[in-house]
């Protein structure tokens, strides 16, 4: 007896999405096999000091070009329980929309003071924070004039919790044509960082981006590391 779940949608105007999205509906997992689908990632991160400050290459180095921003939030499961000690990986383009990734051949300007890669770990209450430069938008499909709006990539991994997502910015004129934003529909709101003032601080502003990790993978809460 075969049962099917969701059919994954293809992101409009996204060539890679067209090439890589399964056409067949996803198969449902029988109960007796469900638990085996929840990987448990070991804690072996070894984060160095300063990795959460993406606004400079190292303490004492000059600030990268562009607007320094602070991103804060709480990571929880769907019951609101904090996801502690999970690894948060962050990557974003510089103010010109260029990544330091070796495969980004866009030719947009690099910033000698910006790496665009950071890591941090959520605390006992599931809170995280990092600092970065507000990324620039960039032309993703020159042939049809489609841009990628400003966005920050984030990966959350710890225990059985797993999410890779992107934080978007309210009011970006390119949001509406973004393929994945279109697929998110009304839920797009969940992926927007909520701007707040940081008076007297050295940031342009802060963004609150609370993350809720969905799905039915069990979350192991009893195994907190010291």
């Amino acid at each position: 007896m075969t049962q099917y779940g969701r059919t994954i949608e293809i992101g409009p105007t996204d060539n890679t999405s067209n090439e890589r999205t399964p056409r067949h509906p996803l198969h449902l997992i029988p109960d007796s096999a469900r638990a085996s689908f929840a990987p448990y990632a070991p804690y072996n991160y070894g984060i160095n000091p300063g990795e959460a400050d993406m606004t400079r290459l190292a303490a004492g180095r000059p600030r990268a070009d562009g607007d320094p921003i602070k991103v804060t939030g709480t990571i929880t499961d769907q019951f609101g329980r904090p996801i502690r000690n999970s690894l948060v990986e962050i990557w974003n383009a510089n103010k010109h929309g260029r990544y330091t990734h070796i495969e980004d051949q866009s030719g947009l300007p690099l910033d000698p003071n910006f790496l665009g890669i950071g890591r941090t770990i959520s605390d006992e209450n599931g809170n995280y924070e990092f600092w970065s430069i507000r990324p620039g938008e960039y032309l993703a499909r020159p042939d049809i004039g489609r841009w990628r709006p400003k966005h920050i990539h984030m990966s959350i991994r710890g225990g059985s919790s797993r999410l890779i997502t992107q934080m978007y910015f309210n009011g970006d004129p390119h949001n509406d044509a973004d393929p994945m934003r279109i697929l998110m529909g009304d839920n797009f709101d969940k992926n927007i960082g909520k701007e707040y003032d940081t008076p007297g601080k050295e940031f342009d502003c802060g963004y609150q981006f609370d993350i809720v990790i969905g799905g039915k993978n069990p979350t192991f809460f009893e195994n907190d590391i010291a």
Binding site: F79, H101, I164, M180, G214
Partner: peptide, 13 residues
């Protein structure tokens, strides 16, 4: 709670 949407990895992990 409504989950945060997953998104693509993008080309530049």
């Amino acid at each position: 709670l409504t989950p945060t949407n997953e998104d693509t990895l993008g080309p530049y992990y």
